[in-house]
Computed example of a mutant assay.
Amino acid sequence: MNVETGSRLEDVPPGAPFEPAPPVPTWTATIGTGIARPVRRLFHRHTAFLDKFAFVLVALLVVVAIVGVFFQPYNPFDVDTRTALLPPSAAHLFGTDDVGRDVLSRILAGAALTLLSAAAIVLLSALIGVVVASVAAVLPRWADETIMRACDIFMSIPSLVLALGLAAALGPSLTSIIVAMVMASWPSTARLTRGILRETMTASFVESARILGVSRFRLMLRHVLPNSLDAIYVQASMEISGTIVMISGLAFLGVGAPPPSPDWGSMIAQGQQYITTAWWISLFPGLAITIGAIAFGLVGDAVRTFVDPASRRF
Rank of each mutant, 00 (worst) to 15 (best):
M1E: 09
T5K: 07
P14E: 08
P14M: 03
E19R: 12
T26D: 14
W27Q: 10
T28W: 15
T30E: 15
I31D: 07
I35C: 03
A36W: 15
P38C: 04
P38T: 02
R40E: 15
L42F: 15
F43E: 08
H44T: 06
H44L: 11
H46S: 13
T47G: 14
A48Y: 14
A54E: 10
V58C: 11
L60A: 12
L60N: 03
L61M: 10
V62F: 15
V64I: 11
V67I: 10
Q72R: 06
P73L: 01
F77N: 04
D80V: 03
T81S: 13
T81Q: 12
A91I: 05
H92S: 03
F94D: 00
V99W: 11
G100P: 13
R101W: 07
R106L: 01
I107P: 04
L108K: 01
T114W: 06
L116D: 08
I121L: 06
S125H: 08
G129D: 06
V132F: 14
A133Y: 10
S134D: 07
L139V: 10
P140Y: 07
R141H: 14
W142N: 03
W142I: 03
A143K: 03
T146V: 10
C151N: 12
D152R: 05
D152G: 13
I153L: 14
S156D: 05
I157K: 04
L162Y: 11
L166Q: 09
A168Q: 08
G171D: 07
S176G: 09
I177Q: 08
V182Q: 03
M183Y: 07
L192N: 11
G195C: 09
G195D: 09
I196C: 11
R198Q: 14
R198Y: 15
E199F: 13
T202Y: 13
S204L: 10
V206W: 11
A209T: 05
S215H: 12
S215F: 12
S215E: 10
R218Y: 08
M220I: 02
L221Y: 10
R222C: 04
R222S: 06
D230S: 14
E239M: 07
T243C: 07
V245W: 07
G254C: 00
G254Y: 00
S261G: 01
I268M: 13
Q273E: 13
Y274G: 01
T277G: 09
T277H: 10
W279K: 00
W280A: 00
P285E: 00
A288F: 13
I291T: 08
I294N: 06
F296K: 00
G300V: 02
V303K: 06
T305R: 14
V307Y: 15
A310D: 11
R313L: 12
